[in-house]
Simulated scan of single mutants.
Amino acid sequence: MSMVTASQVEQQKVKRGMLVVGILVALIIIVFIISMNTGHIRLSPLDVIKTLFGYGTHNQSLILFQFRLPRIVIAVLIGAGLSVSGAIMQGISRNALADPGILGINAGAGLMVMLFIFYFPTTTAAPPFMLPLLALLGAGLTAVLIFSLSYKRGEGITPTRLLLTGIAVAAGISAAMIVLTLKLDPDKYQFVATWMAGSIWGTTWKYVYALLPWIFVLIPYVMIKARTLNVLNLGDATAKGLGAHVSKEQLKLIGAGVGLAGACVAISGSIGFVGLIGPHLARRLVGSNHRFVLPASAFLGALLVLTADLLGRSILQPKEVPVGIVVAVIGAPYFLYLLARSKS
């Protein structure tokens, strides 16, 4: 019986990773097509095809190109961004429970956006290209606070301390946000309440254009750093032994993760658990190599948010259930499951 060589094992992993990614892309396309057909005003598959090629009616073109397609594209981008951000946090902290929502980074981004809404004359006039920058500032300051409080000389950042610190900071920021909501006028309060529930509120093409640069720059950058994430995941001592500049690389990757989370939260509101579920399922499907974990996480996150948005628009028509609530229904039990399995 011939022994399986290391190169053959690697080839099998590559084939499996490519197969998983291919299946995820196919599922996203299927849900994407179903989403174009689904809504308060239903468009048949034939109507969608005709409209895509310019043969639909004025109303059909308006519904598809101005209302549904921007929202669907944003759902895909947000899912990919949040999931990759979670993969970065989990890889650096070596903690499967790390997630920008659980660690409080999403809350920090949300607080900055809420402060802007609080002092801005109208919620509808908020410049879409400014919101990701504000969210990045809030997320960055929160990340600095969390990692500073989690660090202990001689021990570094332990997974348990990081998780508990993040939960505590998130709780404090959430309390501050609740206090702010009490001082909002009714129109702004309605907007903020919807935003906090995780509703994709930026559903026009200008919000797609505001989010695209962050996704198309930061996700490829993180993909390039996949090997670095693999090394950092081995532990600080081992990474230093392999020649990695640990602190410098951690800072770069954390910056990318914070940027992705902040930009997505600015457009989508407070959607939690995507950064937890996506990377964890990706590792189960493709292994621990970040060359495959990162793309699988991106597609799993996109599929999760896109499916949640589809369900949210379908369950209680003509009303909508916010995406964040649908994801939380899935994510909360999964988080408890991971917590029960965690050894530290």
Results as ranks from 00 to 15, higher is better:
Ile178Leu: 14
Gly269Ser: 03
Val31Gly: 14
Ser44Val: 08
Leu303Asn: 08
Ala226Trp: 07
Val274His: 12
Ala298Cys: 13
Leu316Ala: 12
Leu303Ala: 04
Lys225Leu: 14
Tyr334Cys: 01
Tyr209Glu: 02
Ile146Gly: 00
Val169Thr: 09
Leu141Val: 12
Val169Pro: 06
Ala239Pro: 15
Ala176Asp: 04
Val179Asp: 09
Pro322Arg: 02
Thr123Val: 14
Ser150Leu: 12
Phe147Gly: 05
Val48Asp: 07
Ile330Glu: 06
Asn233Glu: 13
Leu253Val: 01
Leu218Asn: 09
Leu141Lys: 03
Pro318Tyr: 10
Leu134Phe: 04
Leu27Val: 10
Gly39Met: 09
Arg313Lys: 08
Val293Ala: 04
Leu339Arg: 10
Ile102His: 05
Ala6Asn: 07
Phe32Asp: 06
Ala139Lys: 01
Ser288Leu: 09
Gln190Ser: 15
Ala282Phe: 10
Lys50Tyr: 13
Lys152Tyr: 11
Pro186His: 06
Gly17Leu: 00
Ser61Tyr: 07
Ser83Lys: 15
Asn106Cys: 12
Val144Leu: 14
Leu300Phe: 03
Ile29Cys: 05
Leu180Met: 15
Val113Ala: 09
Gln250Met: 15
Pro127Val: 14
Ile315Asn: 01
Leu115Asn: 09
Leu338Cys: 06
Ala125Gly: 12
Leu304Trp: 00
Ser297Phe: 10
Ser199His: 01
Ala266Cys: 03
Leu115Trp: 10
Asp309Gly: 03
Ser344Ile: 15
Ala175Asp: 09
Phe273Leu: 13
Phe129Leu: 06
Ser44Leu: 14
Gln317Thr: 11
Leu338Glu: 11
Leu162Phe: 04
Gly202Ala: 11
Arg153Cys: 09
Thr204Gly: 11
Ser314Tyr: 10
Gly156Met: 06
Thr165Ala: 11
Asn59Thr: 14
Thr160Pro: 05
Ile34Cys: 05
Ala170Pro: 07
Leu339Glu: 04
Gln250His: 12
Met1Arg: 07
Met130Trp: 08
Leu336Phe: 14
Ile33Arg: 12
Leu62Thr: 02
Phe292Leu: 03
Cys264His: 04
Val286Met: 11
Leu62Trp: 07
Ile271Arg: 03
Val20Glu: 05
Ile271Asn: 02
